[in-house]
Each structure stands twice: as C-alpha cells, then as structure tokens.
Write a protein that binds this DNA or RNA. Sequence first.
DNA 1: TTGACATATGAACAATCGTTCATATGTTTG
DNA 2: CAAACATATGAACGATTGTTCATATGTCAA
Lengths: 114, 114
Amino acid sequence: MDVCQEKILHYESVQKALNYIPDMDALHSITGIFKALSDPNRLKIVIALAKCELCVCDLAAVCGSSDSAVSHQLRILRNLKIVRYRREGKVVYYRLDDHHVSTLINQTLEHVKE
Amino acid sequence: MDVCQEKILHYESVQKALNYIPDMDALHSITGIFKALSDPNRLKIVIALAKCELCVCDLAAVCGSSDSAVSHQLRILRNLKIVRYRREGKVVYYRLDDHHVSTLINQTLEHVKE
DNA sequence: TTGACATATGAACAATCGTTCATATGTTTG
DNA sequence: CAAACATATGAACGATTGTTCATATGTCAA
C-alpha cells in the first residue's frame, strides 16, 4: 500500500492511521448508510420503522410529507438493504432489514437523551 | 402534538412511532452528524482522528486529496464540534472532540469486520 | 370490466455539495 | 524586514440531492 504524497509531517502517524481506513468498498457501504440517515425525512422513517412495521401512507404521516416523496425515499432505503417490505393486498408494509442499522439508531436515540 | 394528515391506515401505530421521533432540533443535530460522516474523505478524516492526532497535511495524505480540500472539510467538522484543534507553531493539530462520534466510529469499524 | 385506492416511478427543477484555483492569514527562520 | 511554509478562505464550477407533478402499476370490490 503506497502513499504517494509529497508533503507529510508525521509519516509514522499517517501510516498508523492508514491501517484503520477500510478499503474502498467498505468505505462506500459505510458512507452509504450514513448518507441514508443524513436526511431528516429518511431518518424519521428509519426511527419509526425501528419501533414498528408501517405502510407508506403511515410513514408519510410520520414525516409530514407526501406519499410520493416517502416512496422515493423508501426506494433508496430498499436499495441499500436498510428496509424490507411485504405486500398485503393493496398495502405495502415496511420494516428494518439491517440489524446494524437497528442498533445504530437505538444507540443514537440513547445519545440524544443525554 | 397534532397529526394533520388525511390518509393514515394505522393511526395507533403512527401515534406510537411519533413518540420516538426526536424534536426538530435534535433531529437536525443527528442528521448533521450523519451527513458529516457520509462523505468518504470526511469519514477517512474522522476514522484517522479516532486513532491519533494529525495535522492538515497528514490528513491530506490519508485522504489522498489536497490540503485545501481537507481544510474545507475540517471547517465543516469544526463547526459541528466533531473535531477540535490546537496550533503548535505553523502546524495545526486536529483530534476528535465528540465522544459520541468516537464511539459511533469505533462501533462502525467493528461492524465492518463482520 | 370499471372505478377506487395504495404505491411506484420518470422527468424536471431549485438547492446543496465538494472540489479546484487563487489568494489571504499566521508563524518561523534567516 | 523578507522568504518560506502550513493552513484557511472565497468564488466558481459541475455534480448530486430531494421534492413536486404527472402518470404508471398493482390490487380489490362492485
């Protein structure tokens, strides 16, 4: 693993730090999760789903936004495998699919209380 | 706390979920942290600083980007009180300032290993 | 089949983001 | 003092984002 950078003041510290930087794939999957949780409406969705299964129009009520906007956001969360869904007639129920995200959200909610 | 939305299929579940949604201020400070960690270079910076104190040009080497770009990113992290710094002559040393973020990063790195 | 309903999707738009480049600030050394 | 160096900042740019609106899909009930 080469570091081709001309100006480094503390070479050993940089080498040490680089050992902790995940590879590009892992890095992108982490930032993907964080980006998903960086939008207020998406965060509301995930917090709500961390507590109970809900359908699209319920989530729209939780977020205070339109069904369409929520559906778009859910697609993003679906693609990231953060949520999963099941259809029951006309209604589609969503819930969390990633236990890492579950614990992340629960820990975050604990931190907020402090 | 009123819910003024015309279409809700599961009113009780929505009410229950709403109890867990933090107020707007808390919500924005959470999404602010997540947004900060949603950029690959900023995440690299924070991971590196979770392990050791580093100066700007060291961090540029860690990220593989320019000093200027890193400085801009550090300003964002500073404004969010995620990092703090100390000046020693010409060199400015950065380190993490928020223990919530420290534990968040360490837990995330643990999750990556699985 | 037709209408109503729940959800999904595509296009388009303003807004936000992260970089680059040029330049400014602050510090040390000669 | 001036020159060199480490860092910070402002303007500008293309790229990405989240919403809205219109429309499509899928399901049920009459």
